[in-house]
Lab assay of single mutants.
Amino acid sequence: MDETGKELVLALYDYQEKSPREVTMKKGDILTLLNSTNKDSWKVEVKITVNGKTYERQGFVPAAYVKKL
C-alpha cells in the first residue's frame, strides 16, 4: 500500500496499450490498483513524467501482467 492506503501492483512485463481504455507500463513499474474485480484486466493508475511534470492516467492492464504488493 502507498502512503494514502491504496493498494499497489508491480508490473511483471512490459505492456503497450491497445486501446484508449488501457495504459502502457514497463516491467518494474509500480502502479496504484483501483479495481481488481475482473479476473482478466485490472484498472490501475499510472504516473507519467513529461518534461519534469507528473501526470496521472487511469486505464486497464492484463491482470496476469501485474502482481499485488
Rank of each mutant, 00 (worst) to 15 (best):
M1L: 13
M1Q: 13
D2W: 14
D2M: 14
D2N: 14
D2R: 10
E3D: 13
T4L: 12
G5N: 12
G5M: 11
G5K: 15
G5R: 14
G5C: 15
G5S: 13
E7R: 10
E7L: 11
E7Y: 10
E7Q: 14
L8H: 09
L8V: 07
V9G: 10
V9R: 00
L10F: 08
L10K: 06
A11F: 03
A11S: 04
A11C: 14
A11I: 04
L12W: 03
L12I: 09
Y13P: 01
D14A: 05
Y15C: 07
Y15Q: 01
Y15F: 06
Y15V: 00
Q16W: 11
Q16E: 14
Q16L: 12
Q16K: 12
Q16I: 12
E17A: 15
E17L: 06
K18C: 11
K18W: 04
S19H: 11
S19N: 14
P20D: 12
P20A: 10
P20R: 07
R21K: 12
E22L: 03
V23F: 12
V23Y: 02
T24K: 03
T24D: 03
T24A: 06
T24R: 05
M25W: 04
M25I: 15
M25N: 01
M25P: 02
K26C: 12
K26D: 01
G28C: 10
D29K: 00
D29F: 05
D29I: 05
I30P: 00
L31K: 00
L31W: 02
L31D: 01
L31C: 07
T32D: 02
L34P: 00
L34T: 03
N35I: 06
S36A: 11
S36G: 10
T37V: 08
N38W: 06
N38L: 09
K39D: 10
K39I: 10
D40S: 11
S41M: 15
S41Y: 15
W42G: 00
W42T: 00
W42H: 00
W42N: 00
W42M: 01
W42V: 05
V44P: 00
E45R: 10
E45Q: 13
V46L: 12
V46W: 06
V46N: 04
T49W: 10
T49K: 09
T49H: 11
V50H: 10
V50R: 09
V50F: 10
V50K: 08
N51T: 04
G52W: 04
K53D: 09
K53Y: 12
K53F: 13
T54W: 08
T54M: 09
T54N: 08
Y55F: 12
E56D: 11
E56W: 15
E56L: 15
R57T: 06
Q58S: 11
Q58W: 07
F60G: 00
V61G: 01
V61H: 01
P62V: 06
A63C: 08
A63K: 06
A63H: 02
A64R: 12
A64L: 10
Y65F: 13
Y65E: 02
Y65M: 12
Y65P: 02
V66Y: 01
V66F: 07
K67W: 06
K67C: 15
K68A: 07
K68F: 08
K68M: 10
L69R: 01
L69H: 04
L69A: 04
L69E: 01
